[in-house]
Design a protein around this nucleic acid. Sequence first.
DNA 1: ATAGAGATTGCCT
DNA 2: GGCAATCTCTATA
Length: 198
Amino acid sequence: MAAARRARLLSRSFYARSPLAVAPELLNKVVRHGDRAGRIVEVEAYCGLDDPASHAFRGPTPRAAIMFDRPGHLYVYFSYGMHWCANVVAHERDHAGAVLLRAIEPVEGIDAMRAARPKARRDTDVGNGPGKLTQALGIDGQVLGVDLRASTSPVHVLDDGTPPPDDPVVGPRIGIKVAVDEPWRFSVPGNPHRSKPW
DNA sequence: ATAGAGATTGCCT
DNA sequence: GGCAATCTCTATA
């Protein structure tokens, strides 16, 4: 069995890069809320003022302001009047952007996640979508803006020693109507917990 | 003040 | 595959 390695938080410099640089490196990291945790297997980059599909495209409106500041903090928004979506703020200095978490593979607190996702019939339905993974982890507006790098925060992104895939699957983003051709979606090849379609 | 669209999900046909 | 549910944000008047 592999030597135990303590999961560690990521540094500010990890997040202070463009969303396109950060997104593929978030693959195989672990997002944790309390005693529930999941491995990130699919993400999308949203590139601020350069990206018509980004909430930050129109500038620092009240909702999008967090994406113009605070790399490494959590951007959570309410989608379609029903679902919460979780993003990691990531951008270079004087830019804006974030990475949407689109799918996780449950790794800790699986029973609690199943209980929070009664509609999930198979294990792979627990976290295979942006609204599903927040439901599974119990992430909502209460954790908007928390610092993912601070040990005292309720939500963390951790490196448990699993490297990102050498050859992530890259493709167009899902559910948007502008900039639909940008290949800014990344996933762990073959992982069954990714969202569909690929 | 009001209207329309939206980074989704799940149920129905 | 189509579409309703449901509400926040943003733009327009």
